[in-house]
């Protein structure tokens, strides 16, 4: 704006410094103000997804890794469940635990803390009203026709069945590949799907066995991708699912269930 004369360097530095400072101030205050709400939303949508793929479950707790073994996080620790997730995680503390580094916050009740898996391969245990274990929910991801497909599925270790599946994220072709979450026939094909000896994808009528998934006409690749993701995830978790839930004294019966099932 002024005459074309060299501006001293200190003025340039001061200007940018002041701009950076002001900008930082604004961003930090907005961040502090909105963070609890954002975390609450994230926890809530995760809880919804888990409870959706485990229809019998009412509450949930994440699985955490302690000394290389997977266990169910102790109650009262990091949990996104417990019915009133919104209010509870509004405090910021509970919510941060559920979405990032689980049990760390809740470790003060004496139980050993653990590490939750990275987003994308997290696992959760679901409990019904009476507090007994009804199954596990696993996040899983893998390559689809276009891009990575992320999904979550519920697994009943007693019946050795997948009891529900929901696609969390996919970019499959609209009209064809996106039927993996838009076609109710395909989605409900995972409501009672046996995993033994292994999940197979069939075209056409199939033979009516319980471990069969019917491929979507015109979206064979996307259907195959979903089955492949489930198979890989099963192979990974089948040995790793917690055998010992003794961290919680009230869950003795459920411990037997898990062991009897696998």
């Amino acid at each position: 704006m002024e005459a074309p004369r060299q501006t001293p360097a200190y003025r340039l530095i001061v200007t940018l410094g002041v701009a950076g400072f002001l900008s930082g101030l604004i961003i930090v205050s907005v961040y502090e103000w909105t963070r609890p709400k954002i975390l609450a939303h994230q926890a809530e949508s995760l809880r919804k997804a888990v409870l959706e793929v485990l229809p019998a479950a009412k509450t949930m707790r994440p699985l955490v890794e302690v000394d290389g073994a997977w266990r169910i996080a102790p109650e009262g620790g990091a949990t996104a469940g417990a019915g009133t997730a919104g209010a509870e995680s509004g405090s910021g503390d509970g919510a941060s635990g559920s979405s990032t580094s689980a049990a760390a916050d809740g470790a003060d009740d004496g139980a050993a803390g653990g590490k939750e898996a990275a987003p994308g391969e997290r696992a959760f245990a679901g409990f019904d009203d009476s507090g007994s274990l009804v199954g596990f929910a696993f996040e899983a991801e893998g390559g689809g026709f276009q891009d990575v497909i992320r999904l979550i599925y519920g697994f009943d270790p007693k019946a050795r069945e997948i009891v529900g599946m929901r696609i969390l994220e996919s970019r499959e072709t609209p009209g064809l590949g996106d039927k993996i979450y838009k076609d109710p026939k395909f989605v409900h094909g995972f409501d009672a799907l046996a995993v033994d000896p292994e999940i197979v994808l069939v075209k056409g009528a199939g033979s009516g066995k319980e471990n069969e998934v019917h491929a979507i006409t015109g979206a064979t690749i996307s259907s195959r991708a979903v089955v492949e993701i489930l198979r890989t995830s099963r192979a990974h978790w089948d040995d790793a699912t917690p055998q010992d839930t003794s961290m919680d004294r009230t869950r003795v019966s459920e411990k037997e269930e898990v062991q009897g099932g696998s």
Binding site: G175, L176, T217, G218
Partner: peptide, 8 residues
């Protein structure tokens, strides 16, 4: 526009 109809 109509991938399903065009591949049936």
């Amino acid at each position: 526009a109509f991938p399903t109809a065009l591949t049936t």
